[in-house]
Design a protein around this nucleic acid. Structure first.
Lengths: 335, 335
DNA sequence: CTCAGCCGTTAAAACGTTTCAACATGGAGG
DNA sequence: CCTCCATGTTGAAACGTTTTAACGGCTGAG
């Protein structure tokens, strides 16, 4: 079951030295065709599988990068991951996905493990800005969808302030003057930025800051969106917002569902704008207006940045993408 | 940047031998408290990170399992993965996720890599039943959401024939006599099984087999569901089905969206039943009736099975779960 | 004072590769 | 006939751990 056939078994079987076998594996061109065939035959016959640990130990390289993702159940991140993987495989690297599930200690454990594995590099969307202090351990590390505050490493992010501004400006132009912002917790940088963008939009339109009601949520999942919907409907109708800007699409989908359940129509009774533009947003029964982030490109760029990390004259870069508003039925112009 | 501080640097710094450092790392109880402290201090001071490759090479063990997932963008699989991860971490193992994205060659590459990495075990939802011939390479491997045809390895699956039967029986009892089945390609075992279940339900109710119209799709994504919706509406109303059973929830969501876009109501004009009961199904604007698979438990069980693989008297087992129908608004009883 | 037994520590041998300098072989050029 | 070079191949030394058997010092019993 575990015969553990090694390179020297192959060598012996093919009547060559182990160095030659290694050459066949790593620099096939340097070995004579006849010998190469013989070695390959022996490999196939013995069912030899190269031991990556040994290889890595000796060679130092590892051919693997990892992406520590914040929430594998959020389609936004799986889309980012797809971009990462495409770029990685173009560079001949494989991608391991690790799910921190928004859990501090899981994140730490995975980082530790990845360091021990000596992966070629790490991409991470960290759990929280606060604890984002990663001990420098010699493994290149790039932040994804977070901006590196100190200039100590590369990062790829999206301008969330602008995103918030786009969303709320759109709602204002559609005629809304009482708007809810749904999202939380505020400890998350993204949420703060999008909120700030929303406020900026009000200011730009000459509306008072209290035109925006903040409904804070515990997390960014569908269930919280439903809860927020109930809270919203519970407000006295004179003060109830006519539009809602959600910090991500999961919340928006929850909100949407809550509205239909309570017999309210979207967008007539409440206009809704989400954030991320995940595929389910377009596929919702009331297609969701959303702020699109370049998901695949985010991942792709992050991976490319990572690859430049161990160039000799590397300087840390901070790429920032522009979000884009995608208007759909959920925020049709108010009559 | 890459000082590569090793165990013997630590040893020297703490004034002990490298064996003692190794003991501190692996069997802390066996070394005197005073020495242990000194070694730990040295480790911290030098920022030593154990080299997993070397450890693994010598010790043979690896503390990592992997799940090669069919489609990381499908919430069903991320939920299964969550179950896998929970079980893995209880056993002190970490989980690497690999996304084959329904691509044969990616799947092969990842399997090869994982074998080379000498991971402790592999879980896989393979791309296709046909090519599911994995060369036995000594790494334990368990099939997830697929049944092992030959008895050569463990598998964890769900009774898809029963699932199809439940879904269609439910529609028949609600008064429908013209039913569409949407799904494909038929090369996928799951789709075939669910279709068979649907036919069985017809037979059980005394309906002729042509009461079921099969609309075959190219894959199981949202877009194909939308397309099927258009095909469906294009049928002459005398022959148009009044209910649809979709092979998974993504298709069902696409179908739902297509219906609303075309001004048809669900369930009044068309009742819809999905499959998988992903969270987005309940969160859809018309909450989706769906066949629930025990997603987390599927993953959890698969992981546990994997752990038993290298017990001396191991026998391959095939666990099969029962699906369960969850009735929601999308299939309310026909008046 | 000796000896057995225990405890903590250590030297050295693996683990399976890659890599580098050195080595055969044989033909071309002088 | 000698030298030189090119082409293929090889022996042996790493890589950084874990592990095993042996070791020295100390304690308490005889």
């Amino acid at each position: 079951m575990k015969p553990s056939v090694g390179i020297r078994d192959v060598a012996q079987h093919a009547g060559v030295s182990n160095a030659t076998v290694s050459n066949v594996l790593n620099r096939p061109d340097v070995v004579a065709p006849a010998t190469r065939q013989r070695v390959l035959a022996a490999i196939a016959e013995l069912g030899f599988v190269r031991n990556e640990s040994a290889r890595q130990l000796r060679a130092g390289r590892s051919r693997v990068i990892a992406y520590v993702v914040l929430d594998a159940a959020n389609p936004f991140f799986t889309d980012v991951a797809r971009g990462v993987e495409d770029a990685a495989r173009e560079a001949g690297l494989a991608l391991f996905l690790c799910n921190s599930a928004s859990d501090d200690s899981r994140e730490r454990e995975y980082l530790e493990l990845l360091h021990e594995q000596r992966v070629e590099g790490i991409l991470i969307t960290p759990v929280d800005g606060a604890s984002a202090q990663f001990a420098e351990r010699g493994t290149p590390l790039v932040l994804v969808d977070r901006e590196s505050t100190d200039g100590t490493r590369c990062s790829v992010a999206v301008d969330d302030v602008l995103g918030g501004e786009l969303a709320v400006t759109h709602l204002i132009e559609a005629g809304h003057t009482r708007i809810a912002m749904i999202g939380g917790p505020l400890s998350i940088q993204q949420v703060r930025d999008r909120h700030e963008g929303a406020l900026r939009a009000l200011a730009g339109a000459g509306l008072p800051p209290d035109a925006l009601t903040l409904l804070e949520t515990k997390d960014l999942q569908v269930a919280e969106g439903r809860g927020a919907g109930e809270r919203l409907v519970g407000l006295p109708s004179s003060r109830r917002p006519t539009a809602a800007f959600c910090a991500n699409d999961l919340l928006a989908l929850g909100l949407l569902q809550s509205m239909t359940q309570q017999g309210l129509r979207v967008p007539d009774d409440l206009a809704v704008v989400g954030y991320d533009d995940i595929d389910f947003a377009a596929a919702a029964a009331v297609p969701l207006t959303s702020v699109r982030q370049p998901r695949e490109q985010l991942g792709r760029t992050a991976a490319q940045l990572l690859l430049t990390e161990n160039e000799p004259d590397h300087e840390h870069r901070h790429v920032k993408f522009q979000p884009e508003l995608v208007v759909r039925a959920s925020s049709a112009v108010k009559r």
